[in-house]
Nucleic acid binder design. Structure first.
Lengths: 334, 334
DNA sequence: CTGTTAGCGCCTTCAG
DNA sequence: CTGAAGGCGCTAACAG
């Protein structure tokens, strides 16, 4: 497994290394037609494959960006990643994806390794625990974009859902169907994860706008494995909610599990709306009404913005917060 | 954004580069306690972060492997990837994941890019279209492992499901429930994709073993978007099957779509078994009986084997085919 | 115990 | 139109 280098090609083709280099980079401005062919032939013969590591070292650019998602289990993450990859493909950039697993420690490790690997920029779904690190990246002028979550007091471009609008879409739909006892269930709210906080506040505002009183026992933020108990408590209380808004896909799955276990009829006994699309939303019976995020646009926007920064086309314009609008997809569960 | 290098650290700490290098690599056999502290301090001060690109160039090792999956939309792929990543984490290796999208052209592009990036080894779910490329990798002694699919006449270690056993588990379960008109539906079979071919042959063998005649009209291999029509044809025929075995998760989803659309009752009107676990198999009603692959073991095995080759602990032993056993998870759909 | 030196494979002036 | 030389940041002998 001895690698063939540019020098080998040069020797075999009786030219110098720099000529080969020029050929590879398609800078054959003044190169002899015959020389070109000779080089091409020997490249094929020797099965030469350029060494990007060496190139990156020299050029101080890896043509690679890093993406750190907070939790890859959300379909939201996977869809945004797809969009990012598409944009990068088109621009001949590569993507390294890391999953922080909702763990700031892991996130830190990944940020450091991506820096060590000299990626040209990063898109991160911040876990909320590494503000100092983000800050030092920013101070170095390192291209960086946040997605899904916002970090306060840092002028870094962020792509966010209009979470309050998302909650409002759901609540208003519940209300239009005549429901008044409406609950919201999200995953844990420690570390002030943006979407969860905002969705709850949007829910409250929407209720108030409809003149429905807010009941604290209808608002729960729990770790995934506590949701089962939380639901039991909520649904078997004296005045159980008639409708639940699930804060994200995993939460909705937990609710569906509970519903299946307790043979609760949807939507007759309990109406359901989730935020985030689900692979089986259409297949499930009843099919599931959900609030959909424009995941593709979000990923695309994040990637294009980042690449602009990487290519120094956009240096100013720091700290923009881009809010994208959700849409309600009405199906049978409410 | 000027990077701080090992030389900067050396200057500020009044030592030579090599001393710093040794410190970083924890080779402080004979290093002065005081020197160590001085280096550590200046590293912190300057926020020095090592440049892995330079290190990789020197060491001819990137501590990174590449994974190319045929199609990332299968849960199978994502689960195997998770397991691979776990093993690599433990060994301080990084993983670059690429999705060939069932397209040999894309696969080729990715193989070339991973080589250019000097990854230390590759795990690929071969699309079946780049035999010459695999061969040249092999000839160079490039560490390589195949997963899910087998490539003939190439002595490369492969991790495969015992696909015939998987089909047999399903067929035997159908038979034990009294079904005789049993169909199998897989995605397209051009390019002889191993699991599809083997699952069909396993299906045939199992039927024969039970003394049930094989009917060609019960065997369909179609592109995903043709499944709808194929099902219509099959289920609205004179003697429609009473049971269908879905060759993979995406096929099963298509069937469920059809079933929902036509209000077909499961399992009363049609019994269903799928190969591959599904996120909602438990939640769906009726819950779905499936044949489960040991995805975690497969990924783990692939990664450990590859790392052994990378670390030259395993040089012989080429061309082993590891067959892992599936298990039947009985739920309500049959 | 620490410093000097010589590359890793590639790109980029700058001469020829 | 082509070649020679220097250097990207780091490591690994080999001297001191």
């Amino acid at each position: 497994m001895k690698r063939v280098t540019i020098a080998d090609v040069a020797n075999h083709a009786n030219v110098s290394k720099s000529t080969v280099s020029q050929y590879i980079n398609k800078r054959y401005d003044y190169m002899g037609e015959e020389t070109k062919e000779r080089i091409e032939k020997t490249i094929k013969e020797l099965e030469y494959s350029p060494n990007m590591v060496a190139k990156s070292l020299k050029q101080k650019s890896t043509l690679t960006i890093g993406v750190i998602v907070a939790n890859i289990l959300h379909v939201f993450s996977t869809q945004v990643i797809r969009a990012i990859e598409d944009v990068c493909q088109e621009n001949d950039f590569h993507v390294i994806v890391c999953n922080a697993d909702d763990n700031p420690e892991k996130e830190k490790k990944y940020i450091e390794m991506l820096r060590a690997k000299q990626v040209d920029g990063m898109i991160v779904f911040p876990t909320g625990g590494n503000k100092d690190l983000y800050e030092s990246l920013f101070n170095e002028g390192y291209p960086l974009i946040f997605v899904d979550r916002f970090v306060e007091n840092l002028p870094i471009d962020s792509i966010l859902l209009d979470n309050e609008a998302a909650a409002k879409l759901a609540v208003d739909h519940f209300v239009s169907k005549g429901y008044e006892r409406i609950a919201i269930l999200t995953t844990s709210i420690i570390r002030n994860i943006t979407p969860r906080v905002e969705r709850i506040s949007g829910y409250k505002k929407a209720l108030q706008a409809s003149g429905i009183p807010i009941r604290e026992e209808y608002i729960k933020s729990l770790d995934l494995n506590e949701i089962h108990n939380g639901l039991k408590e909520m649904l078997f209380a004296e005045h159980p909610p008639q409708a639940i808004l699930a804060g994200n896909d995993l939460t909705l799955m937990q609710i569906l599990n509970f519903v299946q276990e307790h043979k609760i009829q949807i939507p007759k006994e309990l109406a359901l709306i989730g935020i985030d699309e689900l692979s089986f939303a259409n297949i499930y019976s009843p099919s599931l009404t959900i609030v959909s995020q424009p995941t593709f646009e979000m990923g695309e926007m994040a990637a294009s913005l980042l690449l602009k920064k990487v290519k120094k086309e956009d240096t100013k314009n720091e700290g923009c917060i881009h809010r994208l609008q959700p849409t309600l997809v009405i199906r049978e569960s409410c």
